[in-house]
Design a protein around this nucleic acid. Sequence first.
DNA 1: TAAGATTAGTTATGCGCATAATGTTATGCG
DNA 2: CGCATAACATTATGCGCATAACTAATCTTA
Lengths: 158, 158
Amino acid sequence: MDFAYADALNQAIRLLSLRHRARAAALLEPLGLHTGQEALLLELDRTGPMIQAQLSEALGCEPPSVTLMTRKLEASGHVRRAPAPGDKRASVVELTDRGRALTQQVKGLWCELAEETVAGLPADTAAALPGILMILTGNVDTRRPRRRQGQTIDRGEL
Amino acid sequence: MDFAYADALNQAIRLLSLRHRARAAALLEPLGLHTGQEALLLELDRTGPMIQAQLSEALGCEPPSVTLMTRKLEASGHVRRAPAPGDKRASVVELTDRGRALTQQVKGLWCELAEETVAGLPADTAAALPGILMILTGNVDTRRPRRRQGQTIDRGEL
DNA sequence: TAAGATTAGTTATGCGCATAATGTTATGCG
DNA sequence: CGCATAACATTATGCGCATAACTAATCTTA
């Protein structure tokens, strides 16, 4: 593997992370949201109420992070927590009406951000991009079982 | 702009950021490096000694971050700081011999990481990726003058 | 059913990067 | 020249996300 290429790729990913996150933060700030919280709201909007362990899985961040995110969103009244029926350890998280309203605004910003991000790219490139990035993510993902080299794993899921 | 696409794209970028960073951290940890420090070493290796303001620009992070990074790399003996000739405010940062040696190891890991990252991608897609990501980065970059919508700005660079 | 292992969630702590405020040196202009 | 302004660096502080250590509840199984 050519180092010049490797460096270009890793650096590009690093810079995109920094800038995309910074831009997202700037867009979300008027709504009183910090980066990461929008992902939780959008996930609840997509999937409906769920317990924190599921959120952790869906958001790709660790349980302690989810604890803090939900705590803050609860404090700001966008999310509600209730004891999970049938499991006294777990608590289900769901959007409040205010949270649902805010999520709609987030969706608008999210479209803006995506549009801004892929500006100047050929349409087919832009269309393929999410899928490509998901492949990359899967390739370096150490949380899940570890997919081998971008090919799907045989169905040995316990 | 379609929300489903926007969501897929923004989410993909967010997850790639988290996972790629985590994987890099895991690879760098045996070298005693934390994420971000490798970028500084590689930049010094590429460009040679430079002052922190230049590092800040090259690395895409703010001066206070550079202060901390250099301080830690100085403490671990990989980098040296000297007063800048002709400017008592600035200090030039350069690699020590140990730093240079470590950087060579980082380069190896960087190749591993890139290889792992693009596994399973068509060769031409992988080849085009760094350029595409740099376009995205430029599109959402608010540090520099603000390029408009992915097209180059007219040469009004002061 | 009682004991060990697993799972949900939390608290404590640490790192990277950001912004704000400060001190110091350079510079450009009346 | 002298003064205002800009640039380099730093300190203080805050947020997101991570890991480690812990409690409490649930599952497994002998």
